[in-house]
Amino acid sequence: MSDETGAPAGAPTARVEVRKTYKLFIGGAFPRSESGRTYEVVAADGRFLANAAKGSRKDGRDAVLAARKAQPTWSAATAYNRGQVLYRVAEVMEGRREQFVADIVDAEGVSSSDAALQVDAAIDRWVWYAGWTDKIAQVLGSANPVAGPYFNFSLPEPSGVVAAVAPQESSLLGLVSVIAPIVASANTVVVIASSARPLPAITLTEVLGTSDVPGGTVNVLTGEAGEIMPWLASHADVNALDLTGINDSALAVSLERDAAGTVKRVRRPSPDADWFASPGLSRLRAFVETKTVWHPLGV
């Protein structure tokens, strides 16, 4: 047998590793950057890990289009259904636990037990927000007493398309803590992953792509937030900004100024949050608009 194949018996040829090409996640698909650019991603110890797509402003525009297109479907789904979909994200993440742990060990240079804690917390966070989808209206909404023969209700509605920057340090738990509340409150999101540590975010896109999240609900770009965000901040079809991952306060101020041009909601929390702490409702509350309805009594 060995004579026929030309290879000596007992010395198998070394397998050539299949390297992944890292791409963006827009509208449920995995396109390359429109600009054709990539950048080197290195591990915490400086070792080369991969080339990732370097998103451009046009990728940002495409992602906003996808998010806008997905918005009516996602916000029209029942809150119960949205909860099921977000819970499914947690389920699929659980199946890829080992990969997430390895990604975080590479990206953040932490021990695998610390990385596992972060993965567990990220999965639990999806479950936590999944539970909130059909409770937001009860907690943030109200029946208001009025001096007249009317029922008066206030109900939270999604802001629409949110452009967010994921934390630069916490590559998975921080990212999940930013996007989960945005989609739980029925918005769609364009998020720019941590620039230096994008690989856990890319693995998360593969989870999102296979877990019933409608295409375009979550769009993930890799690259420089400082390059893409000014275009999203001034984009007239973006309804809100989440500047969590902007560490440069001058940039944050300029983004806030750009956002004012089209009166966007802007959330700019303190950059050094403890992602393991209980998140509370502040992020769920950030991107909803309150609609108040008067309804005549006795009809």
Binding site: R68, W231, S234, H235, A236, D237, D258, G261
Partner: peptide, 9 residues
Amino acid sequence: TGHYSGPDY
């Protein structure tokens, strides 16, 4: 205008 517009406009 130098910035992206949207269908609301």
